[in-house]
């Protein structure tokens, strides 16, 4: 299977994952969206040395991945291109912050190492939460939830089309790249001298296709709203899920659960 086919298949697999059936899939998209955003905000808000707090936040995705039936390895596999970037964020901290912060036995660990691990953990947890949202909620349902939150129609349509556009872009890259390599045998990649025209042509071709796709949507009545993806009415149960979820997240953020458990064990 070519790289392009693999990429297209992986994109389509997101739709297949989202079409699954589990307690997490069945949740109303609105609380899922709000709780994911809240989770990310809370994770990011931890101090740079607060590694124990972050560990407590790990409980949430671990539990939800189990409940949704989505293997964590699928998340890491799909995010394999982004994860190195996330991991690279704090990589220089140990060089700038060398003051010892804690010790494990005889080994002293500097603040830089702790802050690097904290930063990486924040990134990984945020990605895990975002992926879980995407993998358990159809994109159009998500867009519908965004519209319910009064996010402008233009932005939501842009999000939807971008997701659909990535597939077209990948296909066009594959076709053009194949055409290039058939006339440049033995050449690895695309020569730098051809980059300009390659990218220009790619942009023009994908714009044409994206326009066709958008026209096809408009011709079938699309006007920026998502009635076909409208979730069921927001019920009292959904409100309870939202409130309870928010309470748990706030508890994990502001009560030092990990430290308390640790001190219990040490006693």
């Amino acid at each position: 299977m070519s790289k392009t086919e693999t990429a297209l298949r992986e994109l389509a697999q997101m739709d297949e994952l989202a079409a699954g059936d589990s307690p997490v899939h069945r949740l109303h998209p609105l609380p899922k969206l709000v709780l994911t955003v809240l989770y990310i905000v809370l994770v990011v808000s931890f101090g740079k040395y607060d590694i124990s707090g972050i560990i407590a936040m790990l409980l949430v995705p671990v539990l939800l991945y189990q409940l949704s039936g989505i293997p964590v390895r699928t998340c890491f596999f799909k995010l394999r291109y982004v994860l190195p970037l996330v991991l690279a964020v704090g990589i220089f901290n140990p060089f700038f912050d060398k003051a010892p912060l804690l010790a494990i036995g005889q080994v002293k660990i500097s603040g830089g190492v702790v802050s690097m691990i904290t930063l990486m953990a924040k990134g990984i947890l945020s990605l895990m939460a975002s992926f879980l949202l995407m993998a358990t909620t159809r994109l159009d349902s998500l867009c519908s939830a965004l519209r319910k939150l009064h996010v402008p129609s233009l932005l939501v349509t842009l999000l939807l089309l971008t997701f659909r556009y990535v597939g077209l872009l990948t296909e066009e890259v594959a076709v053009m790249s194949e055409a290039y390599h058939l006339r440049a045998p033995g050449q690895k990649g695309i020569h730098i001298s051809a980059w300009g025209s390659f990218l220009g042509q790619l942009l023009l071709r994908t714009m044409d296709r994206a326009e066709d796709l958008y026209n096809s949507m408009r011709l079938r009545g699309f006007n920026g709203d998502f009635p076909y993806a409208a979730p069921p009415r927001f019920s009292v149960r959904d409100l309870l899920v939202l409130l309870l979820g928010a309470a748990v997240l706030l508890l994990l953020r502001f009560v030092p659960v990990a430290s308390m458990l640790g001190s219990l064990l040490v006693r």
Binding site: A18, R164, L213, R220, F222, N223, P227, Y228
Partner: peptide
């Protein structure tokens, strides 16, 4: 442009 054939088929009627 929708994930399944059925999703694509209901897209237009529901917009209307």
């Amino acid at each position: 442009f929708m994930p399944t054939v059925l999703d694509d088929m209901v897209f237009g009627p529901m917009n209307y």
